[in-house]
Design a protein around this nucleic acid. Structure first.
Length: 1079
RNA sequence: GGGCGUAUAGCUCAGCAGGUUAGAGCGCGAUCCUGAUAAGAUCGAGGUCGGUGGUUCGAGUCCACCUACGCCCA
């Protein structure tokens, strides 16, 4: 059974398409989704499919995927690994409005709510095919058995939740100021409002005089209160002025007028040249009356108590940061709480469409849009001498996140979920959640919960979950918790009822006591829909109680950071209010992907990178790997296709080439793993150190990747795999190539194959959650599934295979540490060669090496053969204290000495530095022998333990030296004729190999070599006498001919020193060109 | 205005019990190694570790303040 040949010039996108076909053919996805026995609960945060998926959807989908794949390989049955679609809400309505050319609610009413909602229902599927293709291509494994928030079953579950809240008294109706969009005709939720704050909004800034009308203070008579506002349109709704009770207020004369304002703000408002006439505490001003600017309009049907209107109140909320210290109060437009607290009437100046009320017609600004009315109102006040001054100001102001209309603060009747009643539980339950990154828990999310306000859950819109509250004229209300309950109310079957407006609105009944019960017109905030998905996706409690019980709390969710106030919050709020438990245990909170300029990618900016172009060029795995490993998921990161390409080269190609190398030689040798695994070749007792090293590294990798996954640290897990693959390729394979090439099929070769095979197969499994395509291709070929159907018991897909276990017996920390020192010594040795200008190909006589600790030096001794070979030297000597050719220098090991001796550190450092000559040698020997050394520092004797001293040695004279990280390598650069000849032999081999490759010969082709110009060159002839067999063997040459190559053969030129050059020719050998020998 | 986060080489990122000369990859230049490699190695250029102060024998790391950016809240 051979492996399928592997091409190193792999086209990953094409490979991935083949794997996709395979998965489909073998129904791998379905089988994976159904596999497992221990439950692991995942919640899919539903996107709205009314736009094409972008790169930010790619990252959230793969981070969801990678954890689920990992858990699936561990034998978990993943519950909730299914699509979910968020289908309701203003975004959808806005889309449809745009399409139909509407500009507000009246258009929708005219068009008909039934038809409008039908359009909404349809529009959410416009991009569903894009989403499904995207999901498939990026290998986000979810079932297409989707939950859909607009379905009757889903809505019925939401009704049940409403009813639970209702029964607990957590659902209530109240006047409350909310941010109102006059265009959309609806209040916006806090998270919606927060989407639309703009800085640097240009607004009027006016200082208004309010003439004092009635006061007990003589000094106030004839004076005017000065208040500042940026919203002149609210002035007709003014009912009071507020001051800070403990602040100082002054009456000043200014341009012949007497003005009242906070002392602290006099200068900033009026500048210099004012005379203070009198001083008041804010509290003293309470009760003073002033002449109202306009006649505000009460809401229809409201009985207004005018007794407190147009008076001064004192409250701590007043700030002296800006303005005048006197705040204009208009309860209807934001100061409702103050109004209620001080018994003030609520008066209006503009209606819900944002237009000034008709009552102001005589003043000339009726029916104007509130922002447009600002100048008219200011002009009116100016003409009446009530304007102190005016200007413009830039500040932040909220706009509708969808239609960009400036929002109004507006007191309206709405429905609320009393989340504040459970605030302590929200906070406590949050502490049970494992957040990645950690700081979100106590930072952004924790703060948000600390400042919790009641959740405004109703929307005066059309396309959404109808809030199941029916109300009579007299205000009596009932909340309906299921369709059955509603059927009972109306006394007929409603099984064909579509649970949307306007159909649900048509359902009424007559209550014997209260008369006709009609549904309130509101629909639910669509965040309520998604936050309720743990319950509603199963149509609980009407159905699926069993699966709901398993899935009532998620083990894992993952979305971007903008969901802190969105889905993360609504999930958490509903779970806490209903069940007093967190909705999820672990959450990865993704940072935003930014474009190349560091800007957030968003549809409105039009800078969204198309993930398809990246996947088509580099493949989904390359994209996935990059997103997993480039930066921790919580950090915002800049994205460009170039970075994906780099990630591809660095990891996927290295892995692939290692795999290709293995397959190439395994096939040549006919090596296959034994059917029941390869472990009999992997007994540590019989393995050479480098094999044991590879397996030790592999097993510590398994351990590290598993640990990182358990901590939901995907990035660390991925980077660990990348590091291992790098070492496997650039150390293990490179060091062991000859073991694979050699022709004997001995035990050593078997061990090498078994080791590399085990590493590759294990890496394929570890990497499977990250790069499911490449891992699949490698796995299937390695376990013999490709082209050998039915001949193996191995699971048909790496994604159906078991997650690797750590073999403790193979973990050898010491061996791994020793190899690290070796790698360091090799690196330092190369630097020394480089410094001396001597190629690695040129053998040298000897080197001296020193490590920072005796243990490290011992490690080097263990790998002396590797060190000799890597640095191409004949002998290695060790610089310990017995070596006389070096000088020693000492430093304190600060980590230890610092803690122990504190302020003495500089003196100890100096004392160690002063050790020279015999004293230094003695000290070095003491350290090496594990004895303490005694120093006299500031008059006292200090015994330093051997580990508290770092010994450095100078380079021996006449050697090429380099040093780094405590490892020193000194090379003897003396060249003997023998060494020079050997160097030349290797030079010949290298150039002949190059020529072979250039000529396009197969690896196993035997050749004839022509050396033009070598005839008569004593050095070349001598070299070939000594090394001819070696050269022939290395290059598979049947013959080395000292003559100019014939015309037809491939040639290359090797420059020797002093202008000598060899022309090397290679041609394929064969039976007709039997070697006739050169020597 | 408040909260959270980020700030280290041209770019992407490590460095998190405070410790010795601040690293890696990419890119650039040079050299080397190589019959798996689209790879690898070595050297070079490139850093006031955002700034200022403080704690400490010692600060990229801890503290305070400030600046810039991002997100969130107002």
């Amino acid at each position: 059974m051979a492996f399928q040949p592997v091409d190193t010039r792999v086209n990953f996108p094409r490979l991935e398409e083949q794997v996709l076909d395979l998965w489909q053919r073998k129904q791998i996805v379905e089988r994976s989704l159904e596999s497992g026995n221990k439950p692991f609960v995942f919640y899919e945060g539903p996107p709205t499919a009314n736009g094409r998926p972008g790169i930010h959807h790619a990252i959230s989908r793969i981070f969801k995927d990678v954890i689920c794949r990992y858990r699936a390989m561990q034998g978990y049955k993943i519950i909730g690994r299914r699509e979910g679609w968020d289908t309701h809400g203003l975004p959808v309505e806005i889309e449809v409005e745009k399409k139909l050319g509407f500009s507000g609610k009246p258009d929708i009413e005219k068009y008909g709510v039934a038809e409008f909602n039908a359009q909404c229902r349809q529009s959410v599927w416009e991009y569903i095919q894009d989403w499904r293709q995207f999901t498939r291509r990026i290998a986000y494994w979810v079932s297409e058995d989707a939950y859909i928030t607009y379905e009757n079953d889903y809505i019925e579950s939401l009704w049940w939740i409403f009813r639970q809240l209702w029964d607990r008294g957590l659902l209530f109706r109240d006047y409350k100021v909310s941010m109102h969009c006059p265009r959309c005709g609806t209040s916006l939720s806090d998270h919606e409002v927060s989407l639309g704050f703009k800085d640097d909004v240009d607004d009027p800034s006016v200082w208004i005089k309010f003439h004092v009308r009635e006061t007990r203070h003589e000094a106030l008579r004839g004076a005017s209160f000065v208040a500042w506002t940026t919203t002149p349109w609210t002035l007709p709704a003014n009912v009071a002025l507020a001051v800070k009770p403990d602040a100082t207020y002054v009456v000043v004369s200014h341009d012949g007028e007497r003005l009242v304002l906070a002392e602290a703000l006099v200068h900033s408002v009026l500048g210099d040249g004012v005379t203070v006439e009198h001083t008041f505490q804010g509290a003293d001003l309470v009760g003073a009356r002033y002449e109202n600017l306009f006649d505000g309009v009460p809401a229809p049907g409201d009985t207004v108590d005018w007794s407190r209107a147009y008076t001064v109140v004192a409250d701590d909320f007043v700030s002296l940061e800006d303005g005048t210290g006197i705040v204009h109060i208009a309860p209807a437009y934001g100061d409702l709480e103050i109004g209620r607290k001080y018994g003030l009437p609520t008066l209006f100046s503009v209606d819900l469409a944002g237009n000034v009320l008709p009552e102001f017609a005589s003043l000339g600004f009726a029916s104007k849009f509130f922002k447009q009315a600002d100048p008219d109102i200011t002009r009116n006040l100016k003409s009446r001498g009530l304007l102190l001054k005016s200007g413009r100001v830039k500040h932040s102001y909220p706009f509708c996140w969808r239609c960009d209309t400036p929002l109004l603060y507006y007191a309206k009747r709405s429905w609320y979920i009393r989340t504040t009643a459970m605030k302590d539980r929200l906070v406590a339950n949050n502490l049970l959640i494992h957040w990645v990154p950690e700081h979100i828990r106590d930072g952004r999310f924790g703060n948000w919960l600390e400042n919790n306000i009641d959740w405004a859950v109703s929307r005066e819109r059309y396309w959404g979950t109808p809030i199941p509250i029916w109300m009579a004229e007299d205000g009596y209300a009932e909340c309906i918790g299921s369709l059955a309950e509603l059927e009972q109310k109306v006394g007929r079957s409603l099984k064909d009822l579509e649970l949307h407006r306007p159909y649900v609105d048509e359902i009424t009944w007559v209550d014997p006591q209260h008369g006709l019960m009609r549904r309130i017109p509101d629909v639910a905030d669509c965040w309520f829909d998604s936050g309720a998905m743990p319950i509603a996706q199963w149509h609980y409690p009407m159905e699926n109680a069993e699966i709901y019980e398993l899935a009532k709390q998620a083990d894992y969710i993952c979305e971007a950071v903008d969901q802190t106030r969105g889905w993360f919050y609504t999930l958490h709020a509903i779970a806490t209010l209903l069940f007093d438990r967190p909705a999820f245990k672990n959450v990865i909170c993704l940072g935003h992907i930014l474009d190349a300029e560091g800007q957030k990618m968003s549809k409105s900016r039009g800078n969204v990178v198309d993930p398809w172009s990246v996947m088509n060029e580099h493949g989904a795995d390359a994209l996935r790997w990059y997103l997993f490993t480039a930066a921790p998921p919580g950090s915002p990161r800049r994205f460009s296709a170039g970075l994906v390409a780099e990630s591809l080269r660095k990891f996927l190609l290295t892995l692939w080439n290692t795999y290709a190398f293995f397959v190439t030689y395994a096939n040549l040798d006919g090596w296959t793993p034994t059917k029941d695994g390869v472990d009999q070749h992997l007994d540590p007792a019989t393995l050479v150190p480098i094999d044991r090293w590879a397996l030790a590294r592999l097993n510590s990798l398994v351990r590290d990747v598993t640990d990182a996954f358990e901590a939901y640290d995907v990035t660390t897990a991925g980077r660990a795999i990348e590091d291992f693959v790098d070492e496997l390729s650039n150390w293990y394979v490179r060091r062991n190539r000859r073991r694979f090439w050699k022709s004997e099929h001995d035990r050593d070769k078997q061990a090498a194959y078994a080791t590399l095979y085990t590493c590759l197969l294990t890496v394929a499994k570890l990497a499977a959650p990250f790069v499911p395509f490449v891992a699949e291709a490698i796995y299937r070929n390695l376990v013999g599934l490709e082209g050998h159907e039915g001949q193996t018991d191995a699971p048909e897909s790496v994604h159906l295979a078991a997650w690797p276990q750590v073999h403790e017996a193979l973990l050898e920390e010491r061996l791994v540490a020793d190899t690290e020192v070796l790698l360091k010594a090799v690196s330092v040795g190369r630097a020394a060669r480089r410094a001396a200008g001597i190629k690695v190909r040129q053998p040298l006589r000897e080197l001296w090496v020193r490590a920072s600790t005796p243990a490290a030096l011992e490690g080097l001794r263990r790998f002396e053969a590797e060190l000799r070979d890597e640095l191409n030297v004949k002998a290695v000597h060790y610089l310990d204290s017995a070596a006389t050719l070096v000088e020693y220098r000492f430093k304190p090991n600060l980590r230890l000495v610092g803690r122990k001796y504190g302020k003495l550190v500089p003196a100890i450092t100096a004392a160690l530095r002063d050790l020279t000559g015999d004293a230094a040698r003695a000290a070095a020997q003491a350290v090496e022998a594990g004895e303490t050394i005694t120093l006299t520092v500031e008059g006292r004797a200090i015994d330093l333990l051997p580990e508290e001293v770092l010994v450095e040695s100078s380079s021996p004279e006449g050697y090429a030296v380099a040093e780094d990280g405590g490892v020193l390598v000194a090379l003897d650069t003396t060249l003997t004729p023998e060494l020079t000849m050997e160097g030349l032999a290797r030079e010949l081999v290298r150039n002949i190999q190059d020529a072979r490759k250039d000529a396009g010969f197969a690896i196993s082709d035997r050749i004839i070599v022509f050396l033009g110009g070598a005839d008569g060159d004593a050095e070349v002839e001598a070299t070939l006498r000594a090394w001819g067999d070696y050269v022939r063997e290395e290059t598979l040459a049947d013959d080395l001919r000292l003559c100019a190559p014939p015309d037809h053969v491939h040639t290359t030129v090797l420059e020797l020193d002093e202008g000598r050059a060899l022309t090397i020719g290679v041609s394929r050998g064969g039976a007709e060109t039997r070697p006739h020998g050169y020597v």
